[in-house]
Design a protein around this nucleic acid. Sequence first.
RNA 1: GCCGGGGUAGGGUAGUGGUUAUCCUUUGGCCUUGUGGAGGCCAAGACCCGGGUUCGAUUCUCGGUCCCGGCCCCA
Length: 422
Amino acid sequence: MEFESLKGFRDFYADEESARREVFDTIRETARSHGFDEVSAPSLEPLGLYEVKSGEEIVNETYSFEDKGGRDVTMTPELTPSLVRMYAAREQEMSKPVRWFASPKLWRYEQPQSGRLREFYQPNFDIFGAPGVEADAEAIATADAVLSNLGLTDEYELRVSHRGVVRAVVSSLGVDGETATAVHRTIDKSDRLNDDEVRERLVDAGLDDDGVETVLSLTSLDGWGATDELLGVIDGDEQREAVERLRALDEALEGYGVDTVFDPSVVRGMDYYTGVVFECFDTDGDLRAVFGGGRYDTLVEEFGGPSTPAVGFGIGDATLELLMRSADIWPAEETSVDYYVAVIGDVRETATRVARSLRDDGEEVRVNVRDGRSFGSQLEHADAVGATKTVIVGERDLADGEVTVKDMRTGEQEQRPVEGLV
RNA sequence: GCCGGGGUAGGGUAGUGGUUAUCCUUUGGCCUUGUGGAGGCCAAGACCCGGGUUCGAUUCUCGGUCCCGGCCCCA
């Protein structure tokens, strides 16, 4: 084979695409049932769109190039900046809050790994113009509904935190720049590290003993009961505000019947998050985040729009597939069709008419397009392509103005008049 | 960007420094243009790419590439 697909890019053959489509249909239906309107955005954007607030790492991991007009452009590595741009451009004509759903393909130039590819799908849900905890809860509950509608139950866990918590802790340490970034990352990683490893990283970052102990007392917190203790780590306005918000969120989610856990190690990579942040992991802890999101209340304004609060999340398709496969609920990879029209003898014209009338009636129909194929072979083919029924159009029946409709599963068949088959 | 393990027909595999590279499956044809999922027969289909060593490389070696996994980062 002379050519193959690029590293980290996938071919979806019919069976695979059919399974993927089934999953995405469920996601789309969940979006609709939760009142999100579907939009879509360009796949190529000006590079500058991501330089504003996505974070340096994201920009380094993009497929970027100069186009023939000398513009620096980028294959979209995430959707939020595009949505924010779209929102800012038309916000005046839309009734708030605005709820958008989209399921774009995105691209990142990274080393492919389990649950990570260079081209992937990422269904996104966003709410613009609702500042309160009700919108946070609605976003998280929608994310939860997506997974439960897909058939997942206790295979996943929702973890919630607030950027204000980490921000307050870092500012109490009196550090900034690289040190602050290193502290962020260590907190983010702390779930997968033991205390000694966390301590080592913090010392490397340049924290003094008090600073290290402050961060450790934060990362050792776990569960909603620990929100009280947060105020013991740092007691300041920002911390209190974050704690109150998280408690209100927990309460609001009760109404949805959605369980979450408070986990101060949830930080999120995007620089634009400002408040509540959340992510979802498999319960076994083997996979990357299935989805992640949070509140970004300043991004719209930074993109030239009016001050607009926003909250949203994105679901990575690769990890979702891994999780569904491990739960054994990935849809069957097979294609199907309602009818196969078999042709025996010189009856092409009638067969075509039969196919047309079935299609006009909304059925999915595959008609034999190879004259001279043996009848046995046609039945075999009908079976192979997943036909529910086969209409046998043959000279013998046609003498009586009839065709035979065969149920491919039971093998039962009945004679039907050609006219008025439907 | 870095590190480790891999690459034999469409899928799964066996094997080898030297005749025609194994088996299962698949695909096409026929038995079979009026009854499929079974069976029989026939056919198609592969040593990732390039350099080196060698009389000879699919096999050894080096580089690349892709896949799998880990780090960084992240969905």
